[in-house]
Every structure is written in C-alpha cells, then in structure tokens.
C-alpha cells in the first residue's frame, strides 16, 4: 500500500508543476539553426559538378546542365534540378559536398501534401524556398575562402 501512495504523491506533485506542453499549430515551433529541413537551391551558384547527385544515398537528385549562354565564360549552367522528395531522407550529405553552397538546407519541415506529384520538387520551387535558410552549414566541400559567410 505504501508504494502506491508514494507513487500517487509523485503524481500529485506533477499536477502542480509547470506545464511543458506547447500549443503547436497555433504557436509555430522554432527549430534550431542546424535543423535539416527541405533544401533551398540557388541556381546562380551551381556549377553543375554533380557531387550532390553522386553522394545522395537514395539517388533522389537529378540534374542537367547546359552550356553557359554567355560565350565568354566557361563551364556549365544549371538547366533542371529535381529532388524527388518521396525518397529524400534529409541526411544533408548533398549540402556537405557542394563546393559553392548552392544547395543548403532550410528549417522548413511542414511539407505534407495531398498528392504525390507535389512531392517532386523542381528548380523553381527550390529556388523560391528561401525562408529560414540554415546559416551554419559546416560544408566540407567548400574551399576555405568561401566559408567566410557561414557561421
């Protein structure tokens, strides 16, 4: 009997303690900076090196490039860039290897949709997804000079 009463004592104490419940949909949940949400892509920075597509463990990134329309500059420009969000596991290996930080993660995680077609994110969507972009990227692919901006 005594054990039961002791347990009840703990429960009653917890009734008067401070509540930790948050009212989530009404009060937005702020994620810490390093949170891995859906990616944000900036086509101007991309140099079509294909590292992100190569390192993706689930092969969900497909991209094509085209020759630079400016005849003087060398190198490719990005043409299409798709992330198949049905299989993306948000591991952020793609941001780790990108040499120019063209692809970064944001803190957006509310991505449920009513149809599977919406889950195939293309370049325009990823470009416009620039809220809550993550600042601290710890990019091992980027050369040391480019790291000045992050953190």
């Amino acid at each position: 009997m005594k054990g039961l009463l002791k347990g009840l004592g703990v429960t009653f104490k917890a009734m008067t303690a401070k509540k930790i419940t948050t009212s989530y949909p009404d009060v937005p949940f702020v994620m810490p900076d390093r949170f891995r949400g859906i990616q944000h892509f900036e086509p101007d920075k991309c140099i079509v090196c294909n590292q992100c597509a190569r390192i993706c463990p689930t092969e969900c990134i497909t991209l094509t490039g085209k020759a630079n329309p400016d005849p003087e500059k060398k190198g490719k420009v990005i043409d299409t860039y798709d992330i198949n969000f049905e299989i993306c596991i948000l591991c952020d290996l793609c941001t780790e290897v990108c040499p120019t930080e063209a692809i970064v993660m944001t803190n957006n995680f509310e991505l449920a949709s009513y149809s599977r077609d919406d889950l195939f994110k293309d370049r325009e969507w990823l470009d416009s997804n620039n809220h809550n972009v993550r600042k601290d990227n710890n990019n091992i692919g980027a050369p040391a000079a480019a790291k000045g901006g992050a953190k």
């Binding site: 009997m1 005594k2 054990g3 039961l4 002791k6 347990g7 004592g9 703990v10 429960t11």
Partner: peptide, 14 residues
C-alpha cells in the same frame, strides 16, 4: 529518484 518513488515501490508493479 522521482521515478523510483513513482513506480519502484508500487506493489502491483512488483
């Protein structure tokens, strides 16, 4: 310690 108080001595649990 609180958990032990809550459950550890509870006769039903034991």
């Amino acid at each position: 310690d609180e958990y032990n108080n809550l459950v550890g001595g509870n006769e039903i649990f034991l």
